[in-house]
């Protein structure tokens, strides 16, 4: 295998790893995928992955070459993780040529998200379901559904602003608290259940789960990173809700 062939395998493995990581895959999955993809083509490689950086070293013509890739987390996309995983499996199990592999990987990277109306429906169902689950009367499901749709619409609208995750959670939970208190003056809602239902889609369940799974596989650095992410998401939501409550109920905290 020529020098540039080995290079491009390293690049391909790195790109696959980056796709997995930005979609929210666990650290061990990313490392394993990169290593296996390199090994399947006879490139001795090793990788080190954290939520913000991927390092891959391959031994090419006897000398080690290292790639470093800074990664910025994007939206959780479990479909992409699934597809990228399948792609890596079929790449390692066959002798797929590199060009085909790149085409395949690009197809996975550009695979579609649900269109806006469906994602609004998703937001509505999530908030509606959780609101009732947390004690709102079933008759208020439609209103909670509407709030969920509005919240999701709001999240999509502020996406181009590229707010960091902390600010985004503060703003979203603040807005939703205010909105529910205002709606309450018209419809007499089960306020607490409604607000809890609305913050459930924001809550850091993914960060907690991934943090634990990373720690379990010995990736302590990633585990800690994600644990601190979870803490700060929770703080952001609590802060947003807190400020909203103080404004709407007119009491100042201690």
């Amino acid at each position: 295998m020529t020098h540039s062939d080995q290079q491009s395998i390293l690049n391909l493995a790195l790109a696959t790893g980056e796709l997995l990581l930005t979609s929210g895959a666990e650290t061990y999955r990313v490392e394993e995928t990169i290593d296996r993809m390199c090994q399947s083509r006879g490139v001795a490689g090793e990788s080190f992955v954290t939520p913000s950086v991927i390092l891959v070293t391959g031994i090419i013509d006897g000398s080690p070459i290292t790639h470093m890739k800074r990664v910025h987390p994007q939206q959780i996309d479990l479909h992409k993780i699934d597809e990228a995983n399948n792609f890596a499996r079929s790449f390692t199990a066959s002798d797929m040529p590199i060009t085909t592999a790149w085409e395949e990987l690009n197809r996975v990277a550009n695979s579609l998200q649900y269109p806006l109306p469906i994602s609004l429906l998703g937001g509505g169902l999530a908030v509606g379901g959780f609101a009732v689950l947390f004690g709102a009367p079933a008759g208020q499901f439609p209103l909670a559904f509407l709030i969920g749709v509005l919240l999701q619409l709001f999240m999509v609208t502020i996406m181009p602003l590229r707010l960091n995750f902390f600010l985004r959670n503060i703003v979203a939970s603040f807005v939703v608290t205010i909105l529910i208190h205002l709606l309450d003056r018209l419809f007499a809602l089960a306020i607490n259940a409604m607000i809890i239902g609305s913050i459930m889609p924001l809550v850091p369940g993914v960060a907690i789960t991934n943090s634990v799974r990373d720690t379990l596989t010995g990736d302590f650095l990633s585990g800690l990173t994600r644990a601190s992410e979870a803490v700060f998401i929770a703080l952001g939501i609590a802060f947003g809700v807190g400020v909203g409550l103080v404004l709407m109920t007119g009491v100042l905290p201690v």
Binding site: Q75, I76, D77, L78, H79, K80, D82, Q113, Y114, I118, S119, L121, G122, G123, G124, L125, A126, V127, G128, G129, F130, V132, L133, A138, G148, Q152, M200, P201
Partner: peptide
């Protein structure tokens, strides 16, 4: 049954947000 049902519904919603097929 209702608890299960509303849990089911909200998980469907979340699954859509996470782009699960």
């Amino acid at each position: 049954m209702m608890t299960w049902f509303y849990g089911f519904i909200s998980t469907v919603g979340l699954s859509i947000l996470f782009n699960i097929r």
